[in-house]
Simulated scan of single mutants.
Amino acid sequence: MSKGLTVKGIAKLEAKLRKGTNLSDVKNVVKLNGSELQASAMKFAPVDTGYLKRNIHLSIENSGMTARISSDASYAVYQEYGTRYQTGTPHVKPAYDKQKLQFKSDLNKLMK
């Protein structure tokens, strides 16, 4: 998928996390939440042949500070957003909306 998500204020967050938290704990939170996001996206994915669902992948990047969900299915973006001929069947956005609250909560626990 070519669409991305931008998080503002990451430099402040990273500075605060570095100051009072073990970075390996942060990396574990990123990995766990990324894995849960992947599982949710797979759960919400529409299934005809199952190719889309099977090809939602998680990659951990930026030295463990970034979790990226992507799909090898060339039509994944059309399923997510639709076309002028059909409405979309979002699977990544609902998964993200669900997971972001847990991710924020997990990071807040680390900062206390």
Rank of each mutant, 00 (worst) to 15 (best):
residue 22 N to Q: 14
residue 24 S to W: 02
residue 24 S to P: 01
residue 26 V to T: 00
residue 27 K to V: 02
residue 28 N to T: 13
residue 28 N to Y: 06
residue 29 V to M: 04
residue 29 V to W: 01
residue 30 V to P: 00
residue 32 L to R: 14
residue 32 L to A: 11
residue 34 G to L: 05
residue 35 S to V: 00
residue 35 S to F: 10
residue 36 E to Q: 14
residue 37 L to C: 06
residue 37 L to Q: 11
residue 38 Q to K: 15
residue 38 Q to D: 02
residue 38 Q to R: 15
residue 39 A to R: 07
residue 39 A to G: 03
residue 40 S to N: 13
residue 40 S to K: 14
residue 41 A to K: 09
residue 45 A to G: 08
residue 45 A to Y: 02
residue 46 P to E: 01
residue 47 V to Y: 10
residue 48 D to S: 12
residue 48 D to V: 11
residue 49 T to P: 09
residue 49 T to S: 14
residue 52 L to Y: 06
residue 52 L to C: 04
residue 52 L to F: 12
residue 53 K to V: 07
residue 54 R to N: 15
residue 56 I to F: 09
residue 56 I to G: 00
residue 57 H to M: 12
residue 57 H to N: 15
residue 58 L to R: 04
residue 58 L to I: 04
residue 58 L to E: 04
residue 59 S to T: 15
residue 59 S to V: 11
residue 59 S to R: 15
residue 60 I to G: 02
residue 62 N to C: 01
residue 62 N to V: 02
residue 64 G to R: 04
residue 64 G to Y: 02
residue 64 G to L: 03
residue 64 G to N: 05
residue 66 T to F: 00
residue 66 T to C: 05
residue 67 A to I: 01
residue 70 S to D: 09
residue 71 S to C: 09
residue 71 S to W: 07
residue 71 S to F: 06
residue 72 D to Y: 07
residue 76 A to D: 10
residue 76 A to I: 10
residue 77 V to T: 07
residue 80 E to L: 07
residue 80 E to F: 08
residue 81 Y to K: 12
residue 81 Y to H: 11
residue 81 Y to P: 00
residue 82 G to A: 05
residue 83 T to R: 02
residue 83 T to W: 03
residue 84 R to V: 12
residue 84 R to A: 10
residue 84 R to K: 14
residue 86 Q to W: 07
residue 87 T to Q: 13
residue 87 T to N: 11
residue 87 T to S: 13
residue 87 T to H: 10
residue 88 G to P: 10
residue 88 G to A: 08
residue 88 G to T: 09
residue 90 P to G: 11
residue 90 P to A: 12
residue 90 P to F: 10
residue 90 P to K: 05
residue 91 H to D: 04
residue 91 H to V: 02
residue 91 H to T: 04
residue 91 H to N: 06
residue 93 K to F: 12
residue 95 A to F: 08
residue 96 Y to Q: 02
residue 96 Y to S: 02
